[in-house]
């Protein structure tokens, strides 16, 4: 599964609004050591990762403290991200996620993430949420 992996970056943090900056920082660290990833791939992957992170922060847990683990990976052919958190179950339907009307003020997050990567999955196991994202890299 990890064959050919060029890089791995990991973050373990409380899923609060401040952790979004940590996710941006982790992505910046990854880009700084992966200069051959195109600007479009970076922008699309980053928006997808941030939208899922924001979703985790927004839907948290009843106890008010959600722990989240994020793994970012660079492969020759793709970029990958895997989230695991102990928050409440996310009632999402990725398949039906679509952009709302242009004048809608919310409801775009999942649709943006879905549109910006090639694979977006969500699973719930043993009281934890698992999100996986993968974007095929543009050949340079």
């Amino acid at each position: 599964m990890n064959q050919g992996r060029l890089q791995i970056h990991e973050l373990h943090a409380c899923a609060d609004p401040e952790c979004l900056d940590k996710v941006h920082d982790l992505l910046a660290e990854m880009w700084s050591t992966s200069p051959d990833v195109t600007e479009t791939d970076r922008a699309m992957f980053e928006i997808a990762v941030i939208e899922i992170a924001a979703n985790i922060v927004r839907h948290g847990s009843d106890e008010g403290r959600t722990l989240c683990n994020l793994i970012l990976e660079v492969y020759p052919e793709r970029l990958g991200a895997r989230f695991k958190d102990d928050g409440l179950i996310a009632h999402v339907n990725i398949e039906s996620a679509a952009m709302p009307d242009v004048f809608a003020e919310s409801g775009r997050g999942l649709a943006i993430a879905k549109a910006a990567v090639d694979v977006l999955t969500y699973e719930r196991h043993n009281g934890a949420n698992f999100w996986s994202l993968s974007r095929t890299r543009t050949p340079v």
Partner: peptide, 16 residues
């Protein structure tokens, strides 16, 4: 540097 869906929502709300 960066805008996400919440930022877009704020721009749309401002427009309206």
């Amino acid at each position: 540097d960066f805008v996400d869906s919440s930022g877009l929502g704020a721009l749309i709300a401002g427009l309206k």
